[in-house]
Amino acid sequence: MENGGTTQEIVKVTYKTGDYAGEVVDRDERRILVKILSVLKHPTQGDLHHPYDPDVPLFHERRALAYTEKVWIPRQGVEPYRGEVIAYADSLKRALGAEIEQIDRLNRWSARCLEQLDTLRKDYGY
């Protein structure tokens, strides 16, 4: 990507369970500073040590990084990104929608499981 005669290095990074496309701004021997341009995957909600458990003492809310927010990422967590960099607002809307759809699918799966288990419970005579 060209910008005023300089080449932008676009990368994919994961930060606190979210995936992003961003521009490399700076680097040192251990880390790379990335300016966020697009949200690829919205961060996961809840306690990562107890997935799918709503009854934890602290149910984490994780917001997506903001447009042009800069974040230091360990070098091993940065990879080249060759996909389309979608406008931030559109990418956030897509990523949030995908996360909601995944949770909805999990809710529907749970409901079907409960129906099946209720049938089995009756079959077992309990």
Rank of each mutant, 00 (worst) to 15 (best):
K12L: 10
S38M: 03
R112M: 14
L117F: 13
G22H: 01
P80I: 05
K41I: 07
N3Y: 09
R30D: 15
V85P: 01
L120K: 11
E2H: 02
A95D: 00
N107I: 15
G125K: 10
I32V: 15
V39Y: 04
L65I: 14
V25M: 12
R27W: 12
N3H: 07
K93W: 03
V85Q: 01
P80F: 08
A64I: 01
V34D: 00
Y81E: 05
D118G: 10
Y67A: 07
E79R: 09
R82V: 10
A95T: 03
L117Y: 11
W72S: 03
G125H: 04
R27E: 15
S91E: 00
P57E: 10
K122G: 08
E79N: 01
A95Q: 01
L40E: 03
L92R: 04
M1Q: 11
A64M: 07
L96W: 06
A98V: 00
Y126I: 12
S91D: 01
T68I: 11
Y52H: 13
V71I: 14
P57G: 02
V24S: 06
I73H: 00
V11G: 02
L106T: 05
L96Y: 05
L40N: 08
D28E: 14
W109G: 08
T7V: 12
R75C: 09
K70W: 02
M1F: 09
E99G: 11
E23H: 03
S38G: 03
C113A: 15
G22V: 05
K35T: 05
Y88F: 14
G5W: 09
C113Y: 13
L65R: 15
G97R: 12
F59N: 13
A64T: 08
L40Y: 09
Y126T: 07
K16E: 14
E2N: 04
R31P: 00
V13K: 00
H49L: 14
K70C: 12
V85D: 01
Y67N: 02
P43L: 14
R75H: 11
V11W: 02
D53W: 02
V13L: 11
V34G: 00
E23T: 14
R82M: 14
I10N: 01
R63Q: 09
R112K: 15
L58Q: 02
